[in-house]
Computed example of a mutant assay.
Amino acid sequence: MPLYAAYASNMDPTQMRQRAPHSPMASTGWLCGWRITFAGDDLGWEGSLATVTEDRDDPDAQVFVVIYDVPDEDEANLDRWEGTELGVHRKIRARVDTADGPQLVWLYVVDGYEGGLPSARYIGVISDAAEVAGAPSDYIQRLRLHEARNVGPGPDEPMDNQG
């Protein structure tokens, strides 16, 4: 079965069971020499979407990932969720370091420019998913502290419940 590496909200096994019910969690690992970043602006989640990119300037850069065994039927479901047919994400292959050695995996990256800010809500979802998946606390803390845009009314503005 092909191995898929999740680095954002799909790190949460409960979410993955909904999107890819035949895809068990296989392990966790690190995408070494890469960094998590955000790309596109307003593609979803009220801001930029998580993606990964190689980081040739920082030899210590790494991204925590959860690896799932994904059969063809679930891969097609994930492709729809990730918007590959719409050109939002594209799939790439990379090597992930795991406790059992390097694994060749596929993952989704945003097919857009790097930049923009994710929403605070999205940062919270990714951080929570990393925590549930067992990421180290310092990694989770760095995620939680990532710059984000606040979405919704300010503290002195009433909620608009008309829509």
Rank of each mutant, 00 (worst) to 15 (best):
G44C: 09
E46R: 09
L78D: 01
R80K: 08
V70R: 00
D69F: 07
A61P: 05
A50H: 01
D74W: 05
F64Y: 13
A76P: 02
P71R: 08
D79H: 10
D55K: 07
P71G: 10
I67G: 05
R90W: 02
R80S: 11
E54H: 12
E75A: 12
W45N: 09
I36P: 01
T53R: 12
T84H: 03
L43N: 07
S48G: 03
E73Q: 11
E75G: 05
S48R: 02
Q62K: 15
D58M: 06
E73G: 13
H89P: 00
R80Q: 11
N77L: 13
E85M: 08
F38W: 08
T51C: 07
G47E: 05
E75T: 01
H89T: 03
A61I: 06
Y68H: 05
D55N: 14
T37P: 09
D79Q: 10
D74I: 02
E46C: 14
G47A: 08
A39Q: 01
F38Y: 15
A39E: 01
T84N: 01
E73M: 09
D55Y: 05
G47Q: 06
A76K: 06
G40I: 08
I67A: 07
E54D: 11
V88Q: 03
V63G: 07
T37E: 14
D57R: 12
P59D: 13
V66I: 06
A61S: 15
W45E: 12
D57L: 14
H89F: 12
A50E: 04
D57T: 11
T84F: 06
D74T: 06
I67R: 04
R90V: 01
G83L: 05
E82P: 00
D79C: 13
D41Y: 13
V65R: 00
E73V: 09
S48D: 00
T51Y: 07
I36S: 13
G44T: 04
A61Q: 07
P71L: 12
D69M: 14
V52T: 07
P59K: 15
F64N: 01
L49Y: 01
F64R: 04
V88L: 11
E82W: 02
P71A: 11
V52R: 00
L43E: 03
D42S: 13
E54S: 15
E85H: 12
N77D: 07
L43P: 02
F38K: 00
G87A: 10
R56Y: 12
P59H: 12
L78Y: 05
